[in-house]
Simulated scan of single mutants.
Amino acid sequence: MTFIRNALIVTADQVLDGTLAFDQQTIVAIDAGHVHQAGLDWQGDYLLPGMVELHTDNLEKHLMPRPKASWPVLPAILAHDAQIAAAGITTVLDAISVGDIDRDSVRMQTLEPCVAELHLAGQAGILRADHFLHLRLELAEEHLLALFAPLLQDPLLKLVSLMDHTPGQRQWADIDHYRTYVSGKRGWSDAKVESMMGHLLERQEQFAGVNRRAVVALCRALPRPVPLATHDDTTPAHVAEGVADGVGISEFPTTVAAARAARANGLGIIMGAPNLVRGGSHSGNVAAAELARADLLDALSSDYVPASLLHAAFLLQQQGFSLPKAMATVSRNPARMIGLQDRGELAVGLRADFLRVRMTRGIPVVLETWKGGARIA
């Protein structure tokens, strides 16, 4: 048995100065005070639950570190995994896109290799964090069903999200923000942006509705339940459509009205941690802090910056969250949203996933990451 003493332990409902004990992979005791003199002395640092990430496309940055510069898939996965573990994330759902607006994009080229190499790396025991799949389905993709069907039975699949990134609605209701994004991320000229607009609208009209109905039917027919999420809800009607489809999670609602509708219908609400750290949405949508103040935020996602997750959780205290409630948005709440009951909080009987964190100039710094009782970063 291993003891960690002299730590500020954040449980589901309190912060206590005490000792945590774990045996092999499981937490066996949490005690207030310095009841054990042996063990690891954490010198008053925080002992926090390992974080659970439901939606990160961070892997894409490693697959293409510079525009048009592709990187081998397995080394990209390992670099991504190391960054995830160093950020304090012990369980991650890699958000892999199925379909895209550009046939030659890194997303289209690496879908099958990424899934295959994630399996290989997991079986080889060379990943630090636990990796699962979050399949982000671009509903306007002409070949979506052919791309998605082979992945339906994948044992790593933990979440499916329904997305429509057609400009002029949802995340890209503001066309100027869309132009700025695609010209920067994809290197499109103004002329190409304009030429693509009509094509994307036609594609949405032809395929999005048909694909959505087919995907929902496929997911409902699965022998094991896979949670469904709806993405970038902007209106209560978007939420109502998701509820009718059996969706349980609203990812990144773009307005207060959509978030209120999600809450009224019992959906879990996820917002982006970078939104909170930066003080607003890069797409010009609702600020995560505004939803937090209205108690319309259940979970955070690091999205495109792994280190933002813990930082944002601590910033939630400025919006009226206690530290235990704030940490739940990056641990227990996301874990429960996808049916993981064995992790996500510091409690006797749960897996020994935890972090050593020290505050430096108001910023939480991860010093150690432990998963299943073993240090991984």
Rank of each mutant, 00 (worst) to 15 (best):
M1H: 10
T2I: 12
I4L: 07
I9P: 07
A12I: 06
L20I: 13
Q25R: 15
T26R: 13
T26A: 02
G33A: 05
H36N: 13
D41N: 15
Q43F: 09
K61W: 04
L63D: 00
S70L: 14
P72Y: 00
P72Q: 02
A82E: 13
Q83G: 12
I89A: 03
T90C: 03
T91G: 09
V92R: 03
V98T: 14
V98N: 11
A116I: 11
E117Q: 12
E117I: 00
H119I: 14
H119V: 14
L127Y: 01
R128K: 15
H131N: 12
F132D: 07
L133M: 04
H134P: 07
L135T: 10
L139F: 02
H143V: 11
A149V: 13
P150D: 06
L152R: 08
L152Q: 11
L157R: 07
H165S: 02
G168S: 03
S183C: 13
K185N: 12
W188R: 14
A191K: 13
G198Y: 00
L200W: 15
A208M: 06
N211T: 09
N211H: 05
V215E: 07
C219D: 08
L222C: 11
P223D: 00
A229S: 07
A229W: 01
D233M: 05
T235V: 03
G242A: 05
I249Q: 01
A259R: 05
A259Y: 02
G266D: 04
G268Y: 11
I270W: 04
L276N: 10
G279T: 03
S281Q: 06
V286R: 04
A287E: 10
L296H: 08
D303E: 09
L310S: 02
L310V: 01
H311A: 12
A313I: 01
Q317E: 12
Q319N: 11
F321A: 09
K325S: 14
M337F: 11
L346R: 04
V357E: 07
L367V: 14
L367G: 15
E368T: 15
R375I: 03
